[in-house]
């Protein structure tokens, strides 16, 4: 749908039942994200930021309210349809990298393509290409255990990008990295954003949020501030350039 925002969230709530106790993780959140935005979701633990992230990532469904992705309502889809949406539109980067152990970098990067039915040779070609662009062309056959944290997170980013997503979701992507490596990873995400990819990241670290162009603050399941601004941190030259990004 032309003109519609990439993400439109309309008065969404999420209620968990922990035994007898009802937990309102999201208490009515509305949010639009335009294509190409670089958004940080901040908040204390328990503020609902992870829940919001899971809903945006189609890993979970809202209790009430509606969610439109590229103008299409996805809040009512079943597990199979959600899997397909994740596979075709999203890339995920996690705090703990979540690479498959004892599996080579190239095979880790191939994983999303396996489930979208790309033939093996094409899969391999695209995975190698993604790793080259991210500067890991010489680590294709390394297993996660043989790589540093920064390298592992870059493999994870390559895996997130290989399917050509519209939206990159990063859950505390620098949480397990030292500050220098964090800077490298953020510069990489920034470069992707500048090339037109929409990036949403969850963080509790204010200095990480400074890399972004929009900061949301959550508290008790509600958005308490929504700040758009020019990024402060000096953009470092991104090593990756515009890999796998659909303009």
């Amino acid at each position: 749908m032309e003109g519609a925002p990439l993400i439109r969230i309309d008065n969404v709530t999420k209620v968990y039942h922990a035994g007898e106790v009802e937990v309102r993780a999201l208490a009515g959140v509305s949010l639009d994200v335009e294509a190409g935005e670089f958004v940080a979701i901040m908040g204390a633990s328990g503020s609902g930021k992870s829940t919001l992230m899971h809903l945006i990532g189609c890993l979970d469904r809202p209790t009430s309210g509606r969610y439109f992705l590229e103008g299409r309502e996805v809040s009512g889809l079943n597990r199979n349809a959600l899997a397909e949406v994740r596979n075709r539109t999203m890339g995920f980067v996690f705090q703990s990298f979540n690479l498959l152990a004892r599996t080579s970098a190239v095979e880790n990067v191939e994983l999303p393509l396996v489930y979208s039915g790309v033939p093996a040779a094409e899969r391999r070609r695209r995975a190698i290409e993604a790793l080259r662009q991210i500067g890991l062309g010489d680590r294709l056959d390394h297993h996660p255990g043989q790589m540093s944290g920064g390298q592992q997170q870059r493999v994870a980013i390559a895996r997130a990008l290989v399917g050509g997503p519209r939206l990159l979701l990063a859950d505390e992507p620098t949480g397990n990295l030292d500050s220098r490596t964090s800077g490298e990873v953020m510069a990489l995400l920034r470069g992707l954003s500048e090339a037109g990819l929409t990036v949403v990241l969850v963080t509790h670290a204010p200095d990480i949020a400074t890399w972004t162009s929009r900061v949301l603050q959550l508290k008790d399941g509600l958005i308490v501030s929504d700040e758009r601004r020019a990024p402060i941190a000096a953009p470092q030259p991104a090593p990756a350039g515009a890999i796998g990004v659909r303009p």
């Binding site: 994740r86 498959l100 489930y115």
Partner: peptide
Amino acid sequence: REIGVRMAVGAKPRH
């Protein structure tokens, strides 16, 4: 965890 990762990147239950 592996199952979670596979699901996140698009594996359907039947996969």
